[in-house]
Design a protein around this nucleic acid. Structure first.
Length: 869
RNA sequence: GCCGGCGUGGCGGAAUGGUAGACGCGACGGAUUCAAAAUCCGUUGGGGGUGACCCCGUGCCGGUUCGAGUCCGGCCGCCGGUACCA
């Protein structure tokens, strides 16, 4: 195995040599070095020396990555390349462009690694960040690295904690629908306890997904099949004291204020669905033979007369009290049964189950007694955990009633055009409902709600699927809360104590109890004689909620973002907010919702100038492995951008990322495809350069300071137009195709006018910044008339429609919509003449012979269609 | 089940209701070469014809239109999201 056959080895070297069709390796490193040392893409803020206030601003943002131990794969730079092209394009269009990058670096993997190895998460995090930064720099992105942020940096999380204190120190005012300082409440004379109940950051005892093995609570989406997603450890539901954020107060605004946003409709819809607003009524049912009241939520109060039984969630607090002795055993068994089922089991159960409690409730509209059942198709976590069952008009109730032989009473007349029997859950006209008979559903609803309200038996109610945000984690590697506890009460630390840094520890293992690892740092926890520090940390979402704000003014040590910087980068322009935000769909709901929530609070408190943070959002599609499977270690199909760069160069990588297909689409990686765009760049190179006898590259003799021909101007201006429009619409794949067309044409020209080639370098530059700068430099050295300049500084060229006009146009002649002939005629030919030419065409004759020409349609500049039969 | 998105050559993909398949990959043929690689030129949706040309073709069925990949209705398939939300 030791002796590698020599010929193989040799062939291998030859392969590498042959692929370097132009000296990309040297040129790319050179220009990256220049950009680094000269801070070419440094972006100035208002007030900075040299800042040009006359330019419009453009903020192009990437979703910043979690710097994992694996490094980037070629999927990551897809969105980054898109924003980088737009950034470089906009700079050339005369914008001040903010294009930053940073690290979402708190998180579980670094902590898990620390638990296994004892190595401090700061060390691994730093190493991973270095690797990510190195990879990104090798791709040649035009980030302003002076604005790099890292959520684990004390200068950063200081302000994360500061924002938490803003949330802690304000409440939601129902009247103005705005966050207000709690000073308002103090002025009104509310007690400390009453105020604590209104804060946007509050403490509550809530059931959580507790994973003892990981020693932390998990979000619902981190629990799969009743086990932790990471490690597969058992997860149990248990009530725990937790920090919560009152996002539900903003539910309506989070829906309504989506309106002006330029987001994919799918994402808007998912946000709406997640918030899950539904309008209806809460109705009180008295429990027969006791003073208890059972409250239910329904979106169809108009069907109240059809409620033939009631169902409580098995976990409902009144179940035990309602259960009669004869049913007690069955109820207890059922509850045990349900508690053993995982959420997944419960969801997948096809057959409805449930038991009768023995108790009865009284329907407020007609005084009828209806049986009370418990069943696991009713969830304790939604509405009131109890429903009135209307089997005639609800599919689930219908299924349940049919199975258990419960009565079904129709109270909505289905419209005549909708036939069928069984359950009807649509809108119709109320029947068998004395108070509302004959009314269509909408009116019936409002009348019955008015009646309930007058009787004190219910009220209109809006329910949301959205829950308050569980904001605490039992972890080490996260932002500590700037909170201390004294005599069972919490209070904030003073702002000048920020940042509250995590203590240095060697042992990051979970404590084995519900106490977070920070509890082990007893010196740190003891804040004073009487007060103890909060030992929970914030979830990873916290740092990513506001990083786009910090980029505006990343070095500011007095404020989370300077007022002027914030209002310039986020407030200016036609709309507010980030002008372009590109990232994956995996953040369609949570990250974007949480960010929007914080932003709105900061807006209400006067700290930011827009109601929404992200004006335009685009999701890039996943890049699959070459085998069509998702890129993962498991399949061994992961492609490292650095390997691609070593073989074909960064420009080829960038170009191929964009050439694969539409940005939003899922598409597979292809090494052959990279070779394709690499060949294109090599052809572009050879359009400028040729190798002399010694194999040295020099400017081609065919490039001359000559007048361009009409044809050359035409293809150039077509290219400028196409690339400009495609940059605006993010259709980079077709922009590249057009540039290929340009190179194919110009390559064949015996003389290539300098002016034409220079403009081409301008449009190619945002896509392939290294090769274009290198060629430009060579041109400048050879043609003194160009002066000494860089391509990135040159303005984006305008296209001239005049050059696009052709003197002769090829017309298509159709008979009955089918292509039969083509002819080339002068552009200024009249429609009548064209029509005549078409009818007289020899090739057309056979198709019109013996037929009557009914109509001739002439589309100027395109075609003639003869209708004949 | 429900809600999105998408079905176009061997493959990735182009096509303001107006020449379907731009551009790229692959394949085939040729030039160059001792030979190869690289490069350059040509062909490349299917079928028929010596040929000029002809017929068929954008998942399937129907509709609107002078004209449909594109618009409308109904199906089928794939991908993503979501799930007893009362």
């Amino acid at each position: 195995m030791l002796g590698i056959p020599l010929f193989l080895h040799k062939q291998c070297c030859v392969m590498t040599e042959r692929r370097k069709q132009y000296p990309f390796d040297h040129a790319e490193k050179k220009w990256q070095q220049i950009w680094e040392t000269e801070k070419t893409f440094r972006c100035l803020n208002p007030g900075d020396p040299g800042f040009d206030p006359s330019k419009p601003k453009y903020y192009a943002l990437d979703m910043f990555p979690y710097p994992s131990g694996e490094g980037l794969h070629v999927g990551h730079p897809e969105g980054y390349t898109a924003t980088d092209i737009v950034s470089r394009y906009k700079r050339k269009k005369g914008f001040n462009v903010l294009h930053p990058m940073g690290w979402d670096a708190f998180g579980l993997p670094a902590e898990q690694y620390a638990i296994r190895t004892g190595q401090h998460p700061r060390i691994t995090t730093e190493r991973n960040v270095d690797r990510f930064r190195h990879q990104l720099k090798r791709i040649g992105f035009s980030y302003d690295w002076d604005r790099e942020v890292n959520t684990t940096d004390p200068d950063y999380y200081k302000w994360t904690q500061w924002i938490f204190l803003q949330l802690y120190n304000c409440y939601f005012d129902e009247e103005t629908r705005k966050a207000r300082p709690i000073a308002d409440l103090e002025a009104k004379g509310l007690s400390g306890k009453e105020i604590d109940e209104k804060r946007l950051a509050y403490v509550a005892e809530v059931p959580v997904n507790w994973c003892a093995e990981l020693g932390t609570v998990l979000a619902n989406e981190e629990v799969v099949d009743g086990k932790s997603e990471v490690g597969g450890f058992p997860v149990e539901r248990k009530p725990m004291r937790q920090w919560m954020l009152r996002i539900t107060a903003f539910a309506d605004r989070l829906i309504d204020e989506l309106d002006g946003l330029d987001w994919p409709i799918g994402i808007i819809k998912r946000q709406r669905d997640w918030i899950g607003r539904s309008e209806g009524a809460e109705v009180d049912f008295k429990v027969a033979g006791s003073g208890e009241i059972l409250r239910v939520f329904t979106t169809r109060p108009d069907t109240l007369f059809g409620a033939t039984y009631m169902v409580l969630a098995p976990e409902h607090p009144l179940v035990d009290q309602l259960t009669t002795d004869s049913q007690r055993e069955a109820v207890t068994l059922y509850k045990e049964d349900v508690s053993r089922k995982s959420d997944r089991d419960r969801e997948e159960a096809k057959e409805k189950t449930g038991v009768f409690t023995g108790g009865h409730a009284i329907n407020p509209v007609n005084g009828e007694q209806i049986p009370i059942w418990i069943a696991d198709y009713v969830m304790i976590s939604y509405g009131t955990g109890a429903i009135m069952a209307v089997p005639a008009h609800d599919d689930r109730d219908f299924e349940f009633a049919t199975k258990f032989g419960l009565p079904i009473v129709e109270v909505v007349q289905r419209p005549e055009n909708q036939s069928g029997d069984g359950c009807f859950s649509g809108q119709g006209v109320a029947i068998n409902s004395p108070l509302i008979d004959g009314l269509p559903t909408a009116e019936a609803k409002s009348k019955i709600i008015a009646w309930l309200e007058s009787e004190g038996a219910g009220e209109m109610k809006v329910n949301y699927k959205l829950r308050d945000w569980l904001f605490a984690r039992q972890r080490y590697w996260g932002e500590p809360f700037p909170i201390v506890w004294e005599n069972g009460r919490h209070r904030p630390v003073s702002v000048d104590e920020l940042p509250v840094s995590p203590p240095d520890m060697d042992d990051f293992k979970p404590t084995g109890t519900i106490d977070p690892p920070l509890a082990k740092a007893t010196d740190w926890v003891r804040y004073s004689e009487a007060a103890m520090r909060e030992t929970n940390t914030m979830p990873q979402w916290a740092g990513s909620c506001w990083y786009y704000l910090r980029y505006c003014d990343a070095q500011n040590s007095d404020r989370f973002v300077g007022k002027e910087a914030e209002s310039y980068w986020l407030g200016g322009g036609n709309h507010g907010g980030v002008d372009l935000y590109i990232g994956g769909t995996e953040h369609a709901v949570l990250h974007l919702l949480y960010s929007r929530f914080w932003h709105k609070v900061l807006y209400d408190l006067g700290h930011v100038s827009t109601i929404e943070p992200f004006h335009k959002l685009v999701n890039q599609g996943l890049i699959m492995g070459e085998d069509g499977r998702k890129m993962s270690k498991r399949w061994g199909n992961v492609v490292d951008p650095l390997d691609v760069i070593a073989e074909y160069g960064a420009d080829s990588l960038r170009l191929f990322e964009m050439f694969m297909g539409p940005l939003e689409q899922v598409k597979p990686w292809s090494t052959k495809g990279v070779e394709g765009v690499h060949r294109f760049l090599a052809r572009a190179w050879r359009m400028f350069m040729e190798a002399d006898q010694e194999g040295e590259w020099k400017i081609s003799d065919r490039i001359q300071e000559s007048e361009p021909t009409k044809g050359q101007l035409k293809v150039l201006h077509e290219t400028i137009k196409k690339v400009t429009e495609d940059c605006e619409s993010l259709s980079f794949n077709t922009a590249i195709a057009q540039m290929m067309v340009f190179v194919n044409e110009l390559t064949h020209e015996p003389v290539r006018p300098l002016s034409v080639l220079v403009e081409f370098l301008n449009v190619l530059n945002p896509f392939a910044p290294h090769i274009t700068e290198e060629l430009n430099e060579q041109l400048c050295a050879h043609f003194p008339s160009l002066g000494n300049r860089t391509i990135a500084d040159q303005p984006w060229p305008e296209w001239n429609e005049e050059y696009l006009i052709q003197s002769e146009i090829e017309f298509v002649i159709q008979v009955n919509g089918k292509l039969r002939d083509k002819m080339t005629v002068s552009v200024d030919i009249g429609n009548d003449e064209l029509e005549k030419l078409a009818l007289d065409s020899e090739k057309i004759q056979p198709f019109t012979e013996g037929k009557t020409v009914r109509k001739v349609i002439v589309i100027p500049g395109k075609l003639v269609n003869i209708v004949a039969n």
